[in-house]
């Protein structure tokens, strides 16, 4: 292999290692909060990072590689559930039951987040959890910035209503 190639590969490896170290935890948190299952989220996030590594030349040029990882992980999760629903006798992956109290995934706001329509949830994950601006969120999702704002507004309204409801119920106890 040419020396120049080796240098490029080493640089890629170093860049990926840096990205992985810096982004793993925030990506895992975002995926877990959205999916509600820490065990599954851990596997999906690892799979998404593995895919990022396999396509690092492309992913490294992405405007928001962490967003790429989170969306890939969430898409992998959707495929996993679709696949699981069609499983035959062969596949018997065991999903560890969610221990929400232990992981913190049972908080009222995260539970409410998971009840949002998928697109609103994606917008929250990218905009609030990954702190992307409106334009980058829009590019990432392939929709117009105005549509992002609309989804964001509906999502906030729904979350606020759910939280108000939860607070009222708590106060009435």
């Amino acid at each position: 292999m040419p020396t120049g190639g080796l240098t490029g590969v080493s640089q890629d490896k170093a860049e990926f290692a840096e990205f992985f170290a810096a982004s793993w935890e925030s990506c895992l948190r975002a995926v877990a909060a959205s999916s509600g299952n820490m065990t599954l989220a851990e596997d999906q996030t690892a799979e998404a990072f593995a895919r990022a590594w396999a396509s690092w030349r492309k992913v490294s040029r992405h405007p928001a590689p962490a967003a790429w990882v989170v969306r890939t992980a969430l898409n992998a999760g959707a495929s996993w559930w679709r696949r699981r629903s069609k499983e035959t006798a062969l596949a018997c992956h065991d999903v560890v039951a969610v221990d929400g109290q232990r992981t913190g995934l049972d908080s009222a706001v995260l539970a409410a987040l998971r009840r949002l329509p998928a697109r609103q949830r994606e917008v929250i994950v990218l905009r609030v959890f990954l702190d992307l601006d409106i334009d980058t969120t829009a590019r990432q999702l392939g929709i117009a910035p105005g549509t992002v704002r609309a989804h964001l507004s509906r999502a906030f309204t729904a979350l606020r209503n759910e939280l108000t409801q939860a607070t009222t119920m708590e106060a009435e106890r």
């Binding site: 948190r29 992981t103 913190g104 995934l105 706001v109």
Partner: peptide
Amino acid sequence: VTWELRDSLSALTVPGR
């Protein structure tokens, strides 16, 4: 709501890398 979401996210106990 944003702060509540971010607080809940930070409070998650996540496994090691």
